[in-house]
Amino acid sequence: MKFAVIVFPGSNCDVDMYHAIKDELGEEVEYVWHDAQDLSGFDGILLPGGFSYGDYLRSGAIARFANVMKEVVKAADEGKPVLGVCNGFQILLEAGLLPGAMRRNEKLKFICRPVKLKVENNETMFSNKYDKGEIITIPIAHGEGNYYCDEKTLEELIANKQIVFTYQDNPNGSLNNIAGIVNKRGNVLGMMPHPERAVSELLGNTDGLKLFQSIVRSWREAHVTNS
């Protein structure tokens, strides 16, 4: 399976993401610059964290109009897995690939620490290696992770089981403790916590690795015979 890590000016978790895929997951991966015109050679798209375009105006607001985003939308329409982490999640929201928006953290602080998450839905292509209700520890690092959507959207998210991860102890004021959601089709996941920072035994936490393994497992089941 071949992944693209999209790099915007100001991305800063692209190297972690690349490392997670190449060295810990053991799959193919390439960096793709924000003005790329073609993502057809990739099976999965990863939008890393950081501060694309300096977070000017709003987080993700300017990145959403980068050239490559047309291709990201196309990949999502084709059913390819698209994962946005942290700033990547914010970009997916601004791009309308996921519903809702991010507000400043409730306590106005930038929070950088490991948090406990609950796997609410383990039937997505991003979470099938986890148990339902499994509690995992994944680091967060954000100042704007306070998820918001209107009541109608929230009802839909719940009804369609689009809430994949919730915070056990809500760090940022996020609506319904939401840490990560998928689109209706289930192939676009946005999450504030950083699974790519929790993939190595050496660094003391591998809880994020199963997320990437889930993607590969779904892809193999769909694309490889005798898998």
């Binding site: 105006l57 607001a61 300017i62 929201l93 601004e94 928006a101 507000r103 918001y148 959507c149």
Partner: peptide, 8 residues
Amino acid sequence: KLLANPVI
């Protein structure tokens, strides 16, 4: 389209 996010 850009200057405001109508969701919030």
